[in-house]
Nucleic acid binder design. Structure first.
Lengths: 258, 258
DNA sequence: CTTGACCCTCACGTAACGTGAGGCTCTAGG
DNA sequence: CCTAGAGCCTCACGTTACGTGAGGGTCAAG
């Protein structure tokens, strides 16, 4: 057992986990996109958790149709912190989603046309494919992204966060959580007006600082706070029952306003 | 001007229209997937409207990630009428959409984790990519589709439409349209209860026979009936003002129930 | 009758792996 | 201890869906 203290995984294990082929991992290694940080004495590739994280980013970008070279550039971009990557990924993904939705609209229009015995002319149907696929050939990806609404939107919110900004954001979330904890301590019900206001503040905070968070998405977060022990723990370590309280408040708020 | 009566288009024109490269069209020709039905005396490829229709189907399937060989099989499948193709495309597309939405959920979870200072373990993040991409390697596509919820759902509705079924469906839409026309003739307002019931019947008819049609999608159809002259004409030829009436009734119904 | 925009047919290049070939390495069982 | 089988290694050529010229006709305009 030359494997680093049970930490590292072999190619096969990683491949199964990420549902990619071993060859793919070899390829990424060869390409220099993802080289395992360790090797066993026998020369076996050993992937650390850190490597897995990188792999995750790679796969996320790949899923969005970026070329390996472009992915490499993005991942080696020093100026980009993890949140930046996540935002980029979401921006590209949103563009991709919009495209697919457009295709679906076109499909439904065709079905409706058949339904009504109408002949659509092929030219107009082809137009759906006309708007450039924003994920293809993503050289100068930065520029391209500037072209998508989603990215502009995302950028508009995050334009040049400075250290002070981050400090302020972190203080804000602190204040919001503290607010929840206080209400809980006072014995206020999560369906109370004040709890719902706290939930709304939480939602708006996310929307301002991270991503557009509608009521349905917010509801999803509420569920996760209870379903995922790590998120639960985050709240529980401040006060017992806080996770459930926050979750309930968010849901009540979503019901009321969403 | 050897071009067949102004009907056919050259590669370049088609390429621009469909936003693909000329080479791509050459490739499809060479591959036998889409050979223009005509050639000019000089040997220029000339695409007829029929060819454009086929190209549209090809691009739709391609957009969904199918391989050219698979697309060819599908398009040469005699047993499949146009509606069948559209349904297949929608089924695959829905699977693709679900996948992307899953990735987006994962991204948001990560952002939320950063937001809360939590460390997600890479293994679980990789799991998002774990569920097979239903569009990849679409040999025996039929079988694979049988694996996606969307397709089962779609199939469940359409299982073995016979000629009588089609006749019944066509009679149903006839009846629905006649119902609208009658209400219009009686001078009933589109916001009237009876008009909204007709709209609801229309929506349910589509849902039963074609695809899941929610209120928002239905609203989209209503807009299209006014925006696209061919759809407008379809209703107007039955009665003047019918297109606007149907459209208004659908919207009223969606507002009320959606 | 030339010029520029298109078109043709080869034909080789590329990206992201797939698919063996030939050969170590590791762990469980006899 | 030894062997089988599953897993790993490094070449290295194959594949898909085009990209990218090369070399050479075609066509409408001036």
């Amino acid at each position: 057992m030359k494997r680093a203290e049970n930490e590292a995984m072999t190619v096969g294990e990683v491949a199964r986990l990420a549902n990619v082929s071993v060859r793919t991992l070899h390829h990424y290694d060869e390409f220099g996109l993802l080289s395992p940080s360790e090797r066993s004495e026998a020369g076996y590739r050993l992937y650390t958790p850190g490597d897995l994280e990188r792999l995750h980013a790679v796969l996320a970008y790949r899923e969005l149709g970026l070329e390996l070279g472009a992915i490499q550039e993005l991942l080696s971009d020093q100026a980009a912190d993890p949140v930046e990557h996540l935002k980029r990924q979401e921006a590209v993904l949103n563009a991709r989603l919009e495209k697919l939705l457009a295709v679906r609209r076109s499909l439904r229009k065709q079905m409706e046309a058949v339904h009504m015995g109408i002949n659509l002319n092929p030219k107009e149907l082809l137009e759906v494919f006309g708007d450039e696929d924003p994920t293809k050939h993503a050289k100068e990806a930065e520029e391209r992204w500037g072209d998508t609404d989603a990215y502009r939107e995302s950028q508009r919110r995050t334009k040049g966060y400075t250290k002070e900004d981050w400090l302020r954001i972190s203080k804000e979330s602190e204040a919001i959580e503290a607010g929840f904890a206080e209400l809980l301590a006072e014995g206020v019900a999560p369906t109370d007006q004040r709890a719902m206001e706290a939930a709304e503040a939480h939602r708006r905070h996310i929307s301002r600082c991270y991503y557009e968070c509608g009521y349905d998405i917010h509801r999803g977060l509420a569920e996760m706070y209870l379903a995922d022990p790590r998120f639960t723990a985050h709240y529980e370590q401040r006060a017992e029952g806080l996770a459930a309280f926050v979750s309930a408040a968010i849901i009540a708020n979503a019901e009321a306003r969403g």
